[in-house]
Nucleic acid binder design. Structure first.
Length: 537
DNA sequence: CGTACAGGTCTA
DNA sequence: TATCTAGACCTGTACG
């Protein structure tokens, strides 16, 4: 019975190292069947990097339960202050540091030149295991490594399945907003028709709102005292031309970012498949490439439609980060407020502030380091009532200002700052202070955003396994994840299993809370919707 | 003429 | 007296 199998590319083939010390050489084409046969033992598959292995397995219909993604785990261990870096050091360290995921499909054509082939996954795995075992935080770090690796599996599976996306619906939505698709290089008719009114309103017959420079000049020539053309700047101005101009800018932006060109580029065979990169952000959040997956516009989510006979289960956790802060600081008063479905209302009900809006800006200010305006006004009251929570982020900020590394709940370390500079003259001293405070805001947010990302990875990892057990057959025959964005998931499921999926999503959230915070009573209530289209959630 | 950057806007 | 975290990505424009 093997518990670990390290996979390594050797020439054109694959060498599988079992933990009984034996190794098996396989042809590349034999791998999926071999993995499928051994998956019955539920081993942990260890590979250099999931995007170099898992897509081909999924394409062959093979799903694995567990893996170690050495690139991701290496990155975590390298930056964690809880790890003795000497134990990780070796001749391959620089190579592992530099290893990048395979993003473009064409990259696989250049397999032969892949720098990953120079790396030794067996040696790296052994070094990582030694470093982990020697860490005083091995429990939490081990959980983080497992969660990070599971996230790599989720990302590959989501790309494999794709988000159902109806090009015809998308086209209809666009047409309703700006008219039918125009010839390349032309404005849609709906936008073109808005121009005369806007130009007349500002008395600028040649005004071109598509150019920021021309728009700014035109508005100033028309008598408006503005220094930029941002929406929130223009919104403050009382002028009859502003409303149609803002409407024009919003529609133009929509067409430019998610119009027909987006559809042509990113939707194939009824699926939207962005490249998703777990751990792609320093805080541990996922990054994405292609199709602007991190900013999928709410306005067009109606084009995401579940297949015939299928449904979406859309779930998001409200106010994830304040809840995470309550858990990691052990602040029982804030956990009490988090018992409410709406944490901000919980703060109001506790008599800390008068309105929900105050609770929201106050807490967001605490997480981001805002001190101005409304946020600054209510901060002292929050600090009195929630000393542990506010103290934790305050300490993280001070540590960052001193140039120290801060860590998340599970031990992800923040990057080290560059030199803050400074000098004898007042100007450079002020600049250095500004950089210090700026870095403090970053570390303040790092501990919370990063722990939020850890909670989300644990949620995903557990949910993934629950979903698998709900169905039969291949991944895309069963309920499966199709989208994830920081604190929101979309599951595509046969309609008959939607209720079970809903229960699974909730159970996984509860499990994630236990994994991170043990018995500490902080809730992570979900908003869950079973819908036919993403827009209905 | 290709690249880099500024400005802007979308997401959590 | 300070423009509050993390991203992606589009266009127009300046630059080498």
């Amino acid at each position: 019975m093997v518990s670990t199998v390290v996979l390594q590319r050797v020439g054109d083939g694959v060498r599988a190292h079992l933990d009984d010390g034996t190794a098996h050489d396989l042809a590349r084409a034999e791998l999926p069947a071999w993995v499928a046969a051994h998956e019955a033992d539920r081993p942990r598959w260890v590979w250099d990097e999931a995007t170099r292995w898992y897509p081909a397995l999924l394409a062959a219909g093979v799903r694995v339960e567990r893996c170690t993604d050495l690139r991701l785990t290496h990155a975590v261990l390298r930056r964690s202050p809880h790890v003795d870096q000497q134990l990780l050091a070796g001749p391959g360290t620089d190579g592992w540091d530099a290893l990048a995921p395979v993003v473009a499909e064409e990259a696989t054509l250049f397999d032969l030149a892949d720098p990953a082939d120079e790396l030794d996954p067996v040696a790296e795995h052994a070094a990582q295991q030694r470093a982990l075992a020697a860490s005083p935080q091995r429990g939490r770090l081990g959980l983080l490594l497992a969660a990070e690796s599971a996230a790599a599996l989720v990302a590959a599976e989501m790309q494999h399945a794709g988000m159902p996306w109806r090009a015809d619906v998308h086209d209809r939505l666009l047409t309703e907003l700006v008219g039918p698709r125009p010839p390349a290089g032309q404005r849609p008719a709906g936008l073109e028709a808005m121009l005369p009114g806007i130009r007349a309103a500002f008395g600028q017959p040649a005004l071109n709102p598509d150019s920021q420079v021309e728009l700014l000049a035109g508005l100033r020539a028309g008598g408006l005292d503005v220094d930029d053309t941002r929406s929130w700047t223009l919104r403050e101005i009382d002028h009859p031309g502003i409303e149609p101009l803002l409407r024009y800018k919003k529609l133009l932006r929509l067409v430019q970012a998610n119009g027909w060109a987006w559809l042509d580029t990113w939707v194939r065979d009824g699926r939207f498949r962005p490249v998703l990169l777990p751990g792609g952000v320093v805080t541990g959040r996922w990054a994405a490439q292609g199709g602007g997956a991190l900013s999928a516009p709410a306005q067009l989510r109606g084009a995401a439609v579940a297949d015939e006979g299928w449904r979406f289960v859309v779930a998001d956790v409200a106010q994830l980060e304040p809840r995470v802060l309550a858990g990691m600081s052990g602040d029982t008063a804030m956990a009490e407020a988090a018992r409410a479905r709406d944490l901000y209302q919980g703060v109001v009900d506790a008599g800390v502030v008068a309105t929900r809006a105050q609770a929201k800006v106050g807490l967001i200010g605490a997480l981001y380091g805002g001190t101005r305006g409304e946020s600054g006004l209510v901060l002292p009251r929050l600090a009195r009532r929630y000393p542990a929570a506010l103290g934790l982020v305050e300490q993280a900020a001070r540590a960052g200002e001193r140039g120290e590394v801060v860590t998340t709940r599970l031990g992800r370390g923040s990057p080290r700052p560059g030199p803050f500079g400074g000098g004898d003259d007042p100007a450079s001293g002020r600049a250095a202070d500004a950089r210090r405070r700026s870095w403090g805001r970053f570390t303040r947010n790092f501990v919370v955003q990063g722990t939020g990302a850890e909670w989300a990875s644990c949620w995903l990892a557990d949910l993934r396994n629950r979903l698998w057990r709900l169905g039969d057959g291949r991944l895309t025959d069963r309920p499966h994840l199709v989208f994830f964005l920081h604190d929101e998931v979309v599951v595509h499921t046969p309609a008959g299993l939607a209720d079970e999926v809903t229960a699974a999503v909730r159970a996984a959230a509860a499990e994630a809370g236990r994994l991170l915070f043990g018995d500490f009573p902080v809730d992570f209530p979900l908003d869950v919707a079973v819908v036919g289209s993403w827009a209905e959630a």
